[in-house]
């Protein structure tokens, strides 16, 4: 590993203060992305500020119609939370599909969202469920949070503290995994809110990162069923094309994953 300075923060305020002291500091949560990226020299922070042991950032809290996952809660704890498996099973299932078991023990929701990898799973849930990202400075709506590849509304030094998800009437998530990396070649999260609105978000597909899929939303609004999507065609414009899949392949995957997500929705 290359040279860096490690600091364990005792509180969110302490973390922000330590960040300000570093010349090119970065926050470290589970480290399941940042550390590999540092090994590749794609990031070379002067200081890493460890958020993972801050007590205020760990845990899952249930409100009347919402659930709040604090930012440093590992994927394993989200996936295995029995109350969440009942209240929002699609979100627990999504957390259980990230990476592999060892990665899920350390990776966190806050780290995933702050990184905003275009093939990460959590952004699809955040956008489809119209969740609110809470930071040490403000609350950011899902629509405002994601700003494209590896880019978010977070300002320099701003820390995600929690994410609040409204509990939907139904939701489901399906992804076609890249067989080696387990990232989503394309993943689709479908949600029907308690007021009847339908929101659908796809990850791994667009060149700009996570996106809503209006064609599927309209079809599901008229008829919430997998069959309702049989005749829908998704444009390949703006979708990623790489050695793993062409843009039209991903366009088709959006439909197929949406159908599987609707079938699994609960």
């Amino acid at each position: 590993m290359y040279e860096t300075h490690y600091h364990r923060a005792s509180s969110v305020d302490d973390a922000a203060a330590q960040f300000a002291n570093g010349s090119e500091a970065k926050y470290l949560s589970g480290g399941q992305t940042l550390l590999p990226v540092m090994k590749q020299r794609l990031a070379a922070p002067s200081d890493v500020i460890d958020l993972a042991k801050i007590p205020a950032l760990i845990g899952i809290d249930f409100g009347g119609d919402s659930v709040t996952i604090r930012a440093a809660t590992p994927h394993y704890d989200v996936a295995s939370n029995e109350a969440l498996q009942k209240a929002l099973p699609a979100l627990a299932a999504l957390a259980g599909m990230i990476g592999d078991p060892a990665v899920r023990y350390r990776g966190t929701i806050g780290g995933s969202l702050a990184n905003n990898d275009p093939a990460a799973d959590y952004p699809a849930a955040v956008l489809a469920l119209d969740a609110t990202v809470k930071t040490n400075k403000r609350s950011i709506t899902a629509a405002d949070f994601f700003k494209g590849l590896f880019s978010t509304a977070l300002e320099d030094g701003e820390i995600i503290t929690a994410v609040t998800f409204p509990i939907p009437a139904k939701a489901g998530y399906a992804k076609f995994r890249h067989p080696a990396s387990r990232f989503a070649l394309t993943g689709v999260f479908v949600a029907q809110t308690k007021s009847g609105e339908v929101r659908v978000a796809a990850t791994g597909a667009s060149q700009n990162g996570v996106m809503r899929v209006p064609a599927i939303e309209q079809a599901l609004k008229a008829n919430w069923s997998a069959q309702a999507l049989d005749g829908v065609s998704i444009s390949a414009d703006g979708l990623m094309a790489d050695l793993h899949g062409a843009a039209d392949y991903r366009a088709n995957l959006i439909k197929v994953m949406a159908q599987r997500a609707v079938k699994d929705a609960a």
């Binding site: 470290l28 460890d50 394993y76 592999d100 060892a102 350390r106």
Partner: peptide, 21 residues
């Protein structure tokens, strides 16, 4: 996964963990 060890009872990848953590 050749580097997996248990940290507080959880199997994690020790090549992707700083000892400070």
């Amino acid at each position: 996964g050749a580097c997996v060890v248990h940290v507080d009872g959880r199997a994690v990848k020790s090549c992707t963990t700083l000892v400070g953590q």
